[in-house]
Write a protein that binds this DNA or RNA. Structure first.
Lengths: 141, 141
DNA sequence: CTTTCTGCAAATCGTTTGCAATCCT
DNA sequence: AGGATTGCAAACGATTTGCAGAAAG
């Protein structure tokens, strides 16, 4: 998703385009991987020292609501990233690193049970965990 | 998973069987759906008024570590449930209700991309969201 | 101008910690 | 007995809130 498109989504929804919003979007665009709120904050602060945590959180909320940003619930704080292409993540149980997985292996077959229960699925998240290349040979437990 | 089996796992791992642990396990057994720590606390407190939050959290940690309990990272607090049969969940975006889905539609095909990246997958979570039967006809947004 | 948005500071929520007392085995 | 486990109280980190002033349309 390009910056222009994101800004259009924002303004079309009646939100104003503030300096801090522009910077938050730029930071998200530059980092195409899931980041913690703190990481985003630090990068944004670098560009606009006066920015505050609450502004960041408020805007991540707005951007999540508009489906521009996807929020990944994780232990120790949620992660945020631009909803560019739909994809999923792998978290290493040892070192905690989060890797993006290309593509989405979820098709109608995987949604059959929910449909059977009469549920209307509008979104799904598929999160893998295990051991990354680095941590695979290490001791476990 | 039966109570006996759970207790065996616990003691085999060198943990002691305390009153609070027994009660936490009983509460988990009675509620075969994901609960917040607070819900678990309230139910456990009903049986043992002196039980404390920290004891509950510490034991949920132990039980998660032993894979007896699965912990679901969620907005507003993690959810916990007995790892009975492996399955997944659906969350209604409108009313917040969490429903369990029978079975698991994830097979080797869905793990191919992670494997290709050399990742060793030991666990996965598949979370659906959308609108439940009750909320389907309602206004959205 | 009017409404939305920001920064501040303080509050809140879920969860964790240090410690002395208490409980299992 | 002796380490594991508890309850307490206090600390913690992530996130949210109320509010008055600042900025966008």
């Amino acid at each position: 998703m390009l910056q222009k498109k994101i800004i259009k989504i924002l303004t079309d929804a009646g939100y104003k385009l503030t300096r801090q919003r522009r910077i938050i979007i730029e930071v998200l665009l530059k980092n195409r991987r899931p980041l913690t709120a703190l990481e985003l904050y630090n990068q944004a602060k670098h560009r606009l020292p006066a920015i505050s945590h609450d502004t960041l959180y408020r805007n991540l909320e707005v951007l999540s609501f508009l489906k521009v940003v996807s929020r990944i619930n994780a232990r120790g704080g949620d992660l945020f990233e631009l909803e560019k292409h739909h994809h999923h993540h792998f978290t290493c149980l040892q070192c905690g690193e989060v890797k993006c997985l290309d593509g989405c292996p979820i098709g109608p077959g995987q949604l059959a049970e929910a449909r059977r229960q009469g549920l209307e699925v509008v979104y799904h998240k598929f999160e893998l965990s295990g051991y990354c290349n680095k941590c695979k040979p290490a001791e476990r437990m």
